[in-house]
Design a protein around this nucleic acid. Structure first.
Lengths: 195, 195
DNA sequence: ACGATTGGCTATTGACAATAGCCAAAAGGC
DNA sequence: GCCTTTTGGCTATTGTCAATAGCCAATCGT
């Protein structure tokens, strides 16, 4: 019996590809094993089971998305940074519809890598809003608002929630413009409180 | 063998309750049968299988949500209607976290009831925006923007995506205020084109 | 070279969806 | 009130999947 030369990383990488192709629910150990030229029980030598494997795919996806967003926003500031973030976010989600939903779940508190990548995602959004110079609570509200707009649009789009044929890119651009304007207005109001 | 007196409606109703309690993935025919005092194969006399059953739960959920939103918005207009819609939407989602995600999926084209309830949901959102008197394309964009804001916030909230303890209600209220202001601005700009 | 560790494997269990086919309970004709 | 038909339960079975136990060969350390 020759060895396949697998290790944890190779298994997770193949799982990532499988989820990209088939969606999170399409990932089964039986399928994954066959793609790796191995029988299903062998995978337990490398990963702790399907749940842990899915969690690993989620962490890998958060890492990949965070890197993608960091690269897209570096060198941009202000409204420009927010627009770059919005476009990169939607592009990654459309390229990885199976994994995108995994990037929005709360990190498992006992998984340091998960917590770290989730914080990295938070920071890249916070970074795009830096130029607004918001005070602490207001920044949390602003990050939530921006994430909600982007995530909501992408979630509806990938769920097929937009039944009408009207140009989806135009709808998104308008939404992002409005979000930027609203957040800038929040910053301006905070700078000149009550007049 | 006494009969349980089931019919399709009773099965779907119990499935709705099960999804509310356990989430969409927690619904199994074995569990549902045991809750109904029956063995699993008996359910096939009333529903066509798990996929169809889930679809029925989805349609029932769209119907329920649409009714809830209609009741919440009736008698309101303008910004008031949008705020009422937003609050009712979030409240229903929080009351039914297991079923809420089923309400945002595209209807199956061959399921007339699904199409009808999805259109009803669309119309209640459109109704809340009526006072803005938007032109056709702009109305589609506006509905998409509003749905994205609400759905995105709720999706992140129920996914546990908001790790920080800051007041989530405040964040939502601010988001809704911004959305209303943005949509009103769209309407005003359309009314006075380029000047 | 040789012992320990590692990474495959087969066999098995248990949950589940789904189908086939049986049989009794309700429903309807007369 | 029978008798037939339809209906709604059931058991038995198949096939998929996750997971565990336990075997044995390939590789590695010395």
């Amino acid at each position: 019996m020759p060895r396949a030369g697998l290790d944890r990383e190779a298994v997770v990488r193949e799982a990532v590809d499988a989820v990209d192709e088939l969606g999170a629910d399409g990932l089964t150990l039986a399928l994954l094993a066959s793609r790796l030229g191995v029988k299903a029980p062998s995978l337990y030598k490398h990963v702790e089971g399907l749940d842990h494997l899915r969690a690993s795919v989620g962490v890998a996806s958060k890492r990949e998305l965070a890197t993608h967003l960091e690269r897209a926003t570096v060198g941009h500031a202000g409204a420009d940074a927010i627009r770059a973030l919005a476009d990169a976010y939607r592009a990654w989600a459309k390229d990885h519809p199976g994994r995108y939903p995994m990037t929005v779940v709360a990190p498992a508190a006992d998984d340091a890598a998960d917590v770290a990548e989730s914080e990295r995602l938070y920071r890249v959004v916070a970074g795009a809003l830096r130029a607004l110079r918001l005070e602490e609570d207001a920044e949390v509200d602003a990050i939530r608002a921006l994430r909600a707009c982007l995530h909501g649009f992408i979630g509806l789009e990938t769920a097929g929630g937009f039944g009408l044929p009207d140009d989806v890119n135009r709808s998104y651009a308008l939404l992002v413009d409005d979000a930027i304007a609203s957040l800038e207005r929040r910053a301006a109001n905070a700078a000149t409180p009550a007049g």
